[in-house]
Design a protein around this nucleic acid. Sequence first.
DNA 1: AATCTTATGTCAGCGTTGTTGACTTTCCAA
DNA 2: TTGGAAAGTCAACAACGCTGACATAAGATT
Lengths: 170, 170
Amino acid sequence: MAEGTRPTPKTGRSLLYLTDEQLRRGIEAMFFAYRGFTADPDRILEEHGYGRAHHRTLHFIHRAPGTTVNNLLSILGVTKQSLNRVLRTLITDGLVESRVGTQDKRERHLYLTETGSELERQLSDAQRERMRAAYRAAGPEAVAGFRQVLEAMMDPDIRRHFNRLSDGGA
Amino acid sequence: MAEGTRPTPKTGRSLLYLTDEQLRRGIEAMFFAYRGFTADPDRILEEHGYGRAHHRTLHFIHRAPGTTVNNLLSILGVTKQSLNRVLRTLITDGLVESRVGTQDKRERHLYLTETGSELERQLSDAQRERMRAAYRAAGPEAVAGFRQVLEAMMDPDIRRHFNRLSDGGA
DNA sequence: AATCTTATGTCAGCGTTGTTGACTTTCCAA
DNA sequence: TTGGAAAGTCAACAACGCTGACATAAGATT
C-alpha cells in the first residue's frame, strides 16, 4: 500500500483505468463534482438561514415520512446532539412536525409540514435539475456506470441503507 | 421546475434514467458515496489533528508543486483567510514550505517537505485504494460513465480547472 | 516619484455542523 | 420494580467556512 509509483500494469487485459493517474483523476472529479452537486441547494438554503444539515434532514424525512429520530441518526451518520440541534430549529420554524409514537411513546415520528414540504421541493428541484442535466449530457449507459461506481464506493453498512431506501421508494 | 410528480416520459426512446425517482437515487448515491470517499483519509487525518481542508491543501500542492497561494485559492474555492489558517499550521508543522517568488517577489510558491509528502502519500494511498476497489468492482465501462457524469455535474469554471489539471498531469 | 493595484498575511469575530460528556425524563420489558 | 433503551437538553469544544479591516511588499501605471 506504499510501494510508490505504479507503472503500466503487467496484466494482459487492459487495466489502464486502474493506474494511479486514473485513480487520481477520479478522486479529483469526485471532489469537484460534489461541489457542483451541492452548489444550487446551498444558495437556496442560504436565503433561509439554513445549512446542508437542514437539507439532508428535510430530504430523508420527505423520503420516509414518520421515520424516527434514531432511524434518521443511523442514515445521516451524526450524533443525536448534532441532529437534535438541526431538528429543533426545523420544528421551531414549523417545517417539521414531531409526533409521539402511538405504540412506543418514547419514539418521535417526524413529518414535513406544508412549509417544510415546500422548501424540500424547492431544494430537490434544484438538485434534480443539476443531476438531470448531467445525466442527459452523459447518456443512459454512463449513468448506469456512474451508479455502479458510486455504490461500490460506499461503506457496506451504508450500501445496505442505500439499497433499502431504493427498494422502498421504487 | 415545480410541476410536481413527473410521470413516465412521453418520448419514444427510453428516458427512464431521467425520472425523478432515478434522479433521487442518483442524489442519494452521491451523498452516501461521498461519505465513503472521505472516510479513510478522515481517519488518518484525525490521528494527526488535521481535517479535510488540510488534505485538500496537501493534495493540490502535491499535484502542482510550486503553485502560488492565489492559484490554490481559486482551485479550492475558499477565502484566503480560510486557506491561510490551514496553510499556516501546515507550514508551522513543517509539512509545507513557502518560498518567495523569484520573478514576482509578492508571490509565495508552495512545496511539500519530506514530512508533508509522507502524509500526502498516506492519505492518497488510502483514498486511491478505496477508489481502486470501486473501479475494479464496477469495471472499465462503468468507470468511463462515472467520469462522464461527474464531469457534467461540475460548474463550468471548475470543469475548466479540472481539465487543465488532468492535462497537466497526463 | 507618486499612485494604483495585486499578492499575501493577519487579527477579530461569527455561523454551521460535527464532536464528547453528563444528566434527565419517559416508558417498554424482564 | 428495576434495568435499559429512546429521546431530549446543556455545556464545551474543534474544524472550517465566512466577512471586515488592516498591513506590507512589490509590480504596474501615470
